[in-house]
Amino acid sequence: MKKHLLLLVALIVATSASAQFYVSASGGLSMGSAGILMGTSLNDTQTEAKNHYGSYGEGLNAQLRGGYFFNNMFGIELGLGYLHGSDQTIDSYKVNDAGAIAEYTEGIAHGRAYGLNLALVYKFNEKTYGKIGAITKVGGKTEAIFTKTTPTPFGPIIADGATDYHGRVPLGFTATIGHNFKLNDNLKLFAELEYLGINVTRDNSEFTELSINYPAVPENSLGTGVPAATIPAGSWNLGQAPLSHPVFGTLYAPSEITYVDTLANPNPDPSKALSSVVPYSSFGINFGITYTFSKK
């Protein structure tokens, strides 16, 4: 029994003697991995379509981390990160039965996200280390800016707007390998390669800007003898009551949309839509500095 107690005390002393706290800050660049189809654009003559793949995880990032090494090999680290995502093409189009363009949307979108990462750290030696952990998104949004054009016999209906999308709380994983460059006993520079695997399921969205402009209906164009002055060109803006147009129908959009996994068909509620999953996965390279607190 005494031998076991002595071994336990020796282990605690050895662990605490090599235990260390550290903090670090880094910045980096990420590129999308396993890109998902983001949109489909048309050329100027609308004779050729092109797919656009990407990930909202692509862009610039910054991280603040704090860690604790239990001994010379194993540690744990908690990090808070911010992503300033690159623009992604989200163009899309629909055609009618005759193959003509019935609706065309041109847009870009990007991610702005805060993430929390908890990882285990393993030192291969004094210079090289690896990390594996879990990550979640604790804040942020996907911003989209778009123009939707709907052709009509009287001219196009054009909607310009901006939308913020918010997601459900996701869970992903990270894997990192890095290399230290020692400056002194407390300071180290580091460079690391990082993989982040995470997708976000949309939860709700809100229009921050929206205006719909519609053309005039010419006199007698409907064969009813209605004077043109009674159906002039006009517009509808976010926040106004729904506009009932005699030709184009009801013009408006709900300010907020909730995304669900089950929806009636046809959908009786325009404020609800089926959810979708958007990618935030990436490969990245980070550069930073670490300060290790001196052992007492």
Rank of each mutant, 00 (worst) to 15 (best):
M1I: 13
E256C: 02
P268Y: 12
A25E: 07
E77Y: 07
H110Q: 09
Y68F: 14
I132T: 02
M38W: 05
S294V: 08
Q20T: 14
G75K: 03
D185V: 09
I12W: 14
N204W: 14
N286K: 15
L222E: 00
I285T: 15
T105N: 03
A102I: 11
G28R: 13
G39Y: 11
G85N: 04
N186H: 11
A62Q: 11
P151I: 14
I12Y: 10
L7T: 02
S16G: 05
Q88P: 04
Y122R: 10
G81M: 04
P151H: 06
V278D: 09
A49H: 02
G140E: 00
F70T: 04
P153N: 01
K296A: 08
F293Y: 12
A233T: 03
G225E: 03
I198D: 00
N72H: 03
L42M: 09
G28W: 13
A175E: 12
A264V: 13
N43T: 06
A191Y: 05
K94N: 06
A113E: 01
S16Q: 10
F173L: 15
G178T: 13
I101G: 00
N72D: 14
L7D: 07
K3G: 05
R168N: 08
P151L: 05
A134N: 03
S55Q: 02
Y259T: 08
D160M: 12
S294T: 14
A229V: 15
G133L: 10
T136Y: 05
T45D: 00
P270C: 09
N184D: 13
V278M: 08
G99P: 00
L116F: 10
V217C: 01
L196H: 04
L29R: 13
P242F: 06
T136C: 09
G284I: 03
F283C: 05
F70R: 02
N96Y: 07
G197P: 03
N71Y: 04
A14R: 08
D185Q: 11
G155Q: 03
T292I: 12
K141L: 07
D203N: 15
A216W: 00
L196W: 01
S41H: 06
T45H: 01
T147Y: 04
F287M: 15
N125Q: 08
I257K: 11
I12D: 08
W236F: 12
N286C: 01
H179K: 09
G239P: 14
H245W: 06
Y82W: 14
T250Y: 10
G107W: 14
T292L: 02
L42D: 00
N220W: 09
G284P: 00
T258G: 14
P153Y: 02
T142H: 06
I90E: 00
L116S: 05
T128M: 15
L183V: 15
A14S: 15
Y291K: 09
S18V: 12
G35S: 07
F283M: 12
K182P: 01
F181A: 11
G35E: 10
F21P: 08
L222D: 00
K295L: 13
G67I: 12
E194L: 10
G140A: 06
P218R: 02
Y104T: 03
P218W: 02
Y214S: 01
V138G: 05
V13D: 09
I90A: 01
P270Q: 06
K148D: 01
L189P: 04
Y259D: 10
R202I: 12
N51M: 10
G79S: 07
D97R: 05
Y82F: 10
A228I: 14
P218I: 14
R168K: 15
